[in-house]
Design a protein around this nucleic acid. Structure first.
Lengths: 191, 191
DNA sequence: TCCATTCTTGACCTGTAGGTCAAATACTGG
DNA sequence: CCAGTATTTGACCTACAGGTCAAGAATGGA
């Protein structure tokens, strides 16, 4: 009973995610969010309590999306190295403005880590899970014999995670794709 | 002639740098800057024109500092690999809160790249120069025979730069130092 | 010692961020 | 068709960000 909601919460969170992704947490104003979600400011606060809470939901959703996409790719059957390469190459040359905003988790880490406990925790968790997926892939490659036994999966996964994060920062600065391609080559060659 | 300045511009820029480093550009207020520099707000604007301009100076200074420190280290005589390792290990376990704020250039890239042209340009430049220093080191290692001829200096340097940036983001999230140590091990092993 | 000049300070101004609320609206059960 | 409930909207509120400015303070020169 009562008046029915005029919008779907999920869709709203998804749209909010895009806005935060483009502009970061601080510079995004409630007004802009309301506009982008197609609802009034009051509705926004009635549903999400605060800008910060909406951001948390958006960030969590972003994390799920990314981690899942990475795991899906790396779990595909067949040799692992090409899959790892493909995962990294997604940061080399995506449709341009997808990259120009970098990765929401990375941007959030740089903007809020330390100052915002919730954001810090969510982002750490996302990174840890990505690292886990990478490690699993490296382990599989070792069992396959694709990757030599001298390569420690923990070390390799940590390194790959750093590379992914680094590339996502560099993409934001407008670095040319060829340079990131080189990064990928070196990182994959290290396995 | 005229009343003499009550503070040294250089010192002020240096202090401003620390503040921006800790809190980022957006969240730092003119009031706080004035307080931290020990001058009135009017003086601040009289000397630096705008918050943004002061930030630019601070960011440029930060870049010089970092690039120089890296080059100095890598130019020390002797084998190159240990020097590269040491360079990366500076991001593993520095005095804790130095790391908790990450790297100002990286933070700025994530906060402002794309939105702020000047910041983007300064930061890109810093990254490019760091990459140059790393590449020079790798080349030297190849001439030494420390590093095999199969290792492309361009690729290696790009990869190392990404690793450095990635670690600096991860340090901000409170990641444990041991994980970054693993990253360093894998990155150096790749050479 | 008075002046021109350069700096310093803090009160003041304008715009906007983040959020609240009363009134209006749309539904369901009786 | 009315009562009760949940939602919507946009005007409204408070605080503060970023910046300006008039008045005063410290210098060197004539």
């Amino acid at each position: 009973m009562g008046r029915p909601k005029g919008f779907e919460t999920d869709v709203a969170v998804e749209r909010a995610m895009r806005v935060f992704w483009r502009k970061g947490y601080g510079p995004t104003t409630p007004q802009e969010l309301a506009g982008e979600l197609g609802i009034g400011k009051g509705s926004l606060y009635n549903t999400f309590t605060s800008k910060h809470r909406l951001f948390e939901l958006a960030l969590r959703r972003y994390g799920e999306m990314r981690v899942e996409a990475l795991a899906d790719l790396l779990n595909r059957p067949g040799p692992v190295k090409p899959l790892l390469r493909e995962a990294l190459e997604r940061l080399v040359s995506a449709p341009d403005d997808a990259l120009r905003h970098g990765c929401l988790a990375v941007n959030t880490a740089a903007e809020l880590a330390g100052a915002d406990e919730i954001a810090t925790e969510v982002v750490s968790d996302v990174f840890a899970r990505m690292e886990g997926a990478l490690r699993a892939a490296v382990e599989r490659g070792r069992r396959n014999g694709e990757i030599g036994p001298s390569c420690d999966p923990d070390e390799a996964a940590s390194m790959l995670l750093s590379v992914v994060i680094g590339m996502s920062v560099l993409a934001r600065t407008g670095q040319r794709p060829e340079q990131r391609q080189r990064t990928v080559n070196a990182a994959i060659a290290a396995l």
